[in-house]
Design a protein around this nucleic acid. Sequence first.
DNA 1: CTGGCGGATCTCAGTCACGGAATTCCCCTA
DNA 2: TAGGGGAATTCCGTGACTGAGATCCGCCAG
Lengths: 417, 417
Amino acid sequence: MTEIRQPTPRRGTNLPRMGDFNLTVILDAIRRSSGGLSRVELAQIVGLSPQTISNISRRLLDQQLIVEAGKEGSGPGKPRTILRLNPSGMYALGVHLDPAVITTVVLDLVGDVVKHSRIPTPGGCNPQHVIAAIAEEIKALVEDSGVDTGKIAGLGVAAPGPIDLDQGTVVDPPLMTGWDRVNLRDALADATGFETLVDKDVTSAAVAETWAGGPSGTGSFIFMYMGTGIGCGIVLNDEVVRGTSGNAGEIGHIIVDPDGPECDCGLRGCVKSSCIPQVLVAEAEEQGVLNGGAKGTEGPEVQEGFARLCDAADAGDERAIAIIDKSAVLVARAVAVVTNTLDVERVVFGGPFWGRLSERYLDRVPALLAANSAANSIHGIEVVGTGVGEDVGAIGAACLVLEHTLAPRAQRLLLEG
Amino acid sequence: MTEIRQPTPRRGTNLPRMGDFNLTVILDAIRRSSGGLSRVELAQIVGLSPQTISNISRRLLDQQLIVEAGKEGSGPGKPRTILRLNPSGMYALGVHLDPAVITTVVLDLVGDVVKHSRIPTPGGCNPQHVIAAIAEEIKALVEDSGVDTGKIAGLGVAAPGPIDLDQGTVVDPPLMTGWDRVNLRDALADATGFETLVDKDVTSAAVAETWAGGPSGTGSFIFMYMGTGIGCGIVLNDEVVRGTSGNAGEIGHIIVDPDGPECDCGLRGCVKSSCIPQVLVAEAEEQGVLNGGAKGTEGPEVQEGFARLCDAADAGDERAIAIIDKSAVLVARAVAVVTNTLDVERVVFGGPFWGRLSERYLDRVPALLAANSAANSIHGIEVVGTGVGEDVGAIGAACLVLEHTLAPRAQRLLLEG
DNA sequence: CTGGCGGATCTCAGTCACGGAATTCCCCTA
DNA sequence: TAGGGGAATTCCGTGACTGAGATCCGCCAG
């Protein structure tokens, strides 16, 4: 029981902020529509008057964030002018910093990858070297892409947790020795000259889903990130939940198997000790499912072992199938804990290891989840795979910037301190 | 994998809404200050200009929501006029519907209980009878309190989950047979004539904390409600999290004891099968800790047994102490799951069974929580007991109305559909 | 006792975003 | 080619916040 922190008071709002907010609302509506929207449709959707829509559209057109894209007229009357996002109206850079690999992307306004690269994380994990390598990679990528630097809104970085969001630092993540309280934000801002945002990888993935994931990125959902570890990103009512220090989504110690293996926390059957890829691979090795190939449970070997485990399952190996199916049961339990706590409407799966699991998981998880859902009699919970692909981390990092700049967050309305 | 719901689009905002919002912001600032605030202080806190504060203050004074309460001048210059909440400026009614007891309160604007009553829930739990009894009780309470009906903003109802927030219905809660999809909201609105809001008991408790709990009700926290069952209310950045259907906070099936007793969900050691009062009492009976008195694990007997268990612990009975201490360990594990998932800054305990547990829990939980907190190296997590007392449920229900009417929710800014 | 001073609050315009009504624009139909 | 209907724009009005200056109100020095 420590002393209670001085609360940050809620602040008021004023006219200019209202205008900016409405602009982002309209941009958001256009972004979320499949084929663009006309001004009348916008008025109907966002609830503002047609004149206001007209004015804001003009501002958006001036800023080149949207373009008029043809007309659409069926019956009599003046045909509607369709407004669409202008993909090249803004760009964002994203970096996914992973213990093993650094992925970098240039994203355009609609969330499409313009250019991407992947390099192994420089050996030794020395922060200085890694930061220098990232800065260089970004410089090369920007030049390669031919994008006007002036249109790049900033750089987003997705880092493994824990992080300190206020400081922009990475706080001693597992598998990255020497990274205790490294100020990634300031270091990269200095090195690249771009405004930089740092966030946790799972949160970034969730942001990627809201920005580039289509309808599955709306409303309230959790993003289950299947990576070296398992974590989740949380979005409630279209706004990302980051938590006090940016560390929301730590679900590694949810107990999912009372009969499971011991965990470093002293209990048994936690997520991180019973269903992360490394554990599945170890289990498979022990059972002799993986004949041949490199053994080991570090970095790349896990990926390889995991791929062979999935191959075996696809080839019909009962033991391999059992391992994966069991992991689906366990993951579903963890998901149920979170969905029962937050009462969300959807679970989106993704992350580097998701691709190989998707078919079996999508087969099993929905029923398991429904069986354990407290609100099951009121509403079902959708279970879907992300459409964003393997690079969610880096794409999400870039989306952090877009979200920060353009999303209609309530925060945007409030006066600053 | 069901089809994806049509997302509710985010809506714009306009001038009148902005004004109303700022009014609630100012009211909120005054409410949260200990001894009232002057106009200049308000300007500083909420970030609006002094003139705007002046204008809004006038509106608030006209509405009698605030009063000028003396002056405060130390040095030279015109002394500041202190603005305070006017307790009798608005009232709200709250009902806590529990399987065993119905608590009703009249709350004033500052969150003080003006009048309260408690009756046993009419036998048989027949919804019609219960609703009629509540309506009658409310009528009597309002008359008794002598409060001007015109100043009563509405009626809040805290019900055990699950609920359907959109419908205002209670959906088959445990221990209340015959209550499947009973529309409490419409029934009570009809019967009493007051605008009625229905919410889950744990959510109401969390709202009570934000409204009447002082500094521990600010920012991001979870409210651990220790009642017949254990649930939690969630508040993130000063806004209550209700979930898609109002059922957020269902933590009964978080596994906290891999060696615990079997649960109806098929697993072992869930919260609801290992640390709710009923289980503790049963355990105590089994061990012969509770000599004499009524036995049983239904309704009032649990309360009685629980009281005797606590008496025994207070008297130094090692077995009783062990039972309660173990429950603290288990509850702390559940709390850790939620705080790690949401990265909140505070845990507030409360509810009918909290009083007797508080001393031992406050002794043990903070350390246990810190040991299991993922973000422990970045920030600690405060653990406090609520100041709201045993009637949190009913008080929270009334606070639902106040919150709905007066809290600066972002939602208030957005245009309606 | 009185004028000066400093700070709080109010008055009075001024600015700007949204809203309503009327107008213009544009394509389809007859 | 004229008429019609729906989309988008123009023009003006309203209202909320802002800035500058005026006013109010006690303390303090003379």
